[in-house]
Amino acid sequence: MEVRTIKVFTTVDNINLHTQVVDMSMTYGQQFGPTYLDGADVTKIKPHNSHEGKTFYVLPNDDTLRVEAFEYYHTTDPSFLGRYMSALNHTKKWKYPQVNGLTSIKWADNNCYLATALLTLQQIELKFNPPALQDAYYRARAGEAANFCALILAYCNKTVGELGDVRETMSYLFQHANLDSCKRVLNVVCKTCGQQQTTLKGVEAVMYMGTLSYEQFKKGVQIPCTCGKQATKYLVQQESPFVMMSAPPAQYELKHGTFTCASEYTGNYQCGHYKHITSKETLYCIDGALLTKSSEYKGPITDVFYKENSYTTTIK
């Protein structure tokens, strides 16, 4: 009895394709271990004539594949690729409408935090270190965002349907971005203890939790000093293409032309909904596939993004 075979390709990165001759009487799992086709788990399936010449994702289970996976995804987590594939199996079914010149995501599976993050990423200057993220990001900007969303979920250790947080998501993504040249110098002034300067680099240099107003941050924000008295913390120097200011959701007025974009969060910790506000020729609110415009805006804002380049204080 002759062994019926077909020729397929296996890959971990969709760049390096490895030619395989597979036995049609055995499952993919018996031949390769966990195997995925377009995100779908085909591990328990036997090869079919229609699979001839198709590319299958496999887990990096030998040295060659491990090197290829690390170079593309910059992670050695053995569960990463499987999590990416199972997320992709959902995100490829989502709709990605162009809204006001940006790629958004039609609401499904509690994905409003991903839509808000995706919209924000198209408006701030950011370059990702893992080629996987950078490639998928370019495709997302062009309207094909399924891979990018699935990668975000995998890097953030999230599953489809789980509630997510924009600030946490951005923080994970910033860790995989090139923020080497970003720098922030802060000064804390206390009447009792004097003053202390701190220099922050990388992710810490672009994120701040405690106030939404970048102007206020430049002037000074009140913080408790270690001595128990009130101290003032203010920005001395900022070198970065953008800054992200966050605070627990509270009524906040966004003035046209003073910011790049913002995240609105309605609801409580267990259950809520994100919308995205962007400042173009007027203010726009993007909620999944829905767009509304207004000249002014007041609502429960939790993150505001500002364009920056270089700032030095005039406070002496």
Rank of each mutant, 00 (worst) to 15 (best):
L118V: 10
S263N: 14
G33D: 04
T169S: 05
P78W: 15
C190Q: 03
T226M: 10
L88K: 06
A177Y: 01
C285E: 12
T258P: 00
T278G: 07
P34K: 12
Q134C: 09
L121R: 00
T199R: 08
E204W: 08
L121H: 02
Y96C: 04
F174M: 07
N129P: 04
T159L: 09
V67H: 14
D109I: 03
Y155I: 03
P300Q: 10
P131M: 04
F305K: 03
G161S: 06
T313H: 15
R4I: 14
I124H: 01
Y311A: 07
V12N: 12
Y214T: 02
A87T: 04
I315D: 15
T232G: 02
L119M: 07
S50K: 13
F174K: 00
E239S: 10
T35N: 02
E71L: 09
V42E: 06
S310T: 15
Q175L: 09
Y155R: 01
V203E: 06
T116N: 09
C227Q: 02
T232A: 06
M24G: 09
T11R: 04
F148R: 02
N16K: 09
P224I: 13
L81Q: 07
P248V: 07
V206N: 01
N268L: 10
T11A: 06
T278M: 09
S50E: 12
L179F: 10
Y57M: 14
K127L: 07
M245S: 00
K183V: 09
I6N: 06
Y234V: 09
K255E: 15
N157E: 08
P249T: 00
A250K: 10
A117S: 12
L290S: 13
C156D: 00
K293F: 10
T10K: 13
V58Q: 07
L290R: 12
V243T: 01
H74N: 09
H276S: 05
T312L: 14
A250L: 08
F128V: 02
E162H: 01
Q195R: 12
E296P: 13
C112E: 04
L212T: 07
V189G: 05
Y297R: 02
F217T: 05
T116L: 05
D77G: 05
C227N: 02
A247K: 05
E125F: 04
C261D: 01
E71P: 03
H90L: 12
V8N: 01
N187V: 12
D180F: 07
K95A: 15
N100D: 12
E68Q: 08
A142F: 11
S171C: 15
Y311W: 11
F80G: 04
T169L: 09
P78S: 08
